[in-house]
Design a protein around this nucleic acid. Sequence first.
DNA 1: TCTTGTCTGGACCAATTGGTCTAATTGTGT
DNA 2: ACACAATTAGACCAATTGGTCCAGACAAGA
Lengths: 188, 188
Amino acid sequence: MSTARPAPPALPTKDRLIHAAARLFHTQGYNGVGMNEILAEAKAPKGSLYHHFPNGKSDLALAAATMASDGMLRVIAASFAEANTFKDGATTLCFKLAKLFDKSGHWAGCPVSATLFQDAANQEFRAQADHFYNGWITEVEDHADRFGLSREEATRKAEHLFMLIQGAWQLARARHSSDVLRNIPQYL
Amino acid sequence: MSTARPAPPALPTKDRLIHAAARLFHTQGYNGVGMNEILAEAKAPKGSLYHHFPNGKSDLALAAATMASDGMLRVIAASFAEANTFKDGATTLCFKLAKLFDKSGHWAGCPVSATLFQDAANQEFRAQADHFYNGWITEVEDHADRFGLSREEATRKAEHLFMLIQGAWQLARARHSSDVLRNIPQYL
DNA sequence: TCTTGTCTGGACCAATTGGTCTAATTGTGT
DNA sequence: ACACAATTAGACCAATTGGTCCAGACAAGA
């Protein structure tokens, strides 16, 4: 048939690289992933990588973390969009994250810390991580505002939720189970 | 003076290796540390390392994590030992950890996850991390018992504290500040 | 003193790391 | 058809990785 095309990669090379890097980094950590591994996963040659990301691995890490952070913002928005109370939104968020964790094979870590918490010397990575985290907290805060909470109370609740999720996620990895994520709402 | 001795390394080689590995791992992560770096830090030759730790890097990581976990158990015990309420003990613990975080240059991560959360394939590491985390939680639980809480309530409170500390620690790294750790008690 | 086992020192190794470079190919506007 | 940039392909590189190996230093018991 004339429709037997070689099935083009669907995504442009640059995006395939970012997606491959994001997946590998947040599963194995920045230092646990080699360029060759990323290249193989993205089915791209070395030349393309250093064409799109002149600074190599670190550029790629920043791009991957940015994409992951944007995704998290969307999950947060979707969770709170149709909620009637803060706790409702937070509960939905926890369940959505638990599902994502399960889909990753009960292993993936926080995409931001796994990708950007490299070593004490890399201040650029640290600053970016701070920026992403604050973005998530602000997003939750803004939704909390909608429920009539004061700004202080909104900040307090948003940071509390952030900590619980990060902490539960860590425990979930160790236990290979997302139960602890689903149990978060009892602490709110 | 006759006391100008060459100052022997004070600690036996094996312990120097464990200490060096522990410090480097929980600052740069398992994959961010090379054997040469550990050897240099511990001032030990390669032969000694593979004599004391026949399985090399992974043996060393397990030993380092074990030492770090024992240290954490002692910090927990010290915090709750002279406390009159659960919240008192938890507060002391948070302040002690904040101090440790500051001493590390506002950067060190959780010694267990930084050392043992390598990749999905390494089940031995994951199981050990689970074991250490449960040890910490049980330690807190036992102290909660002392204050007359039911077993369910003790477990609930201990896990809650664990999550808050882990999450706050993550945020503290990104922000380069231990404030968030000292603020934990307001959520208890 | 001689021996036996523990520990140290470091040369050496194959494999992999992140990265460079250039030649070819592909796409686009004229 | 042509020119010109954007992209791809992959050979190649120095440096580093975790690990092996063995000759010798050292200590303790006989």
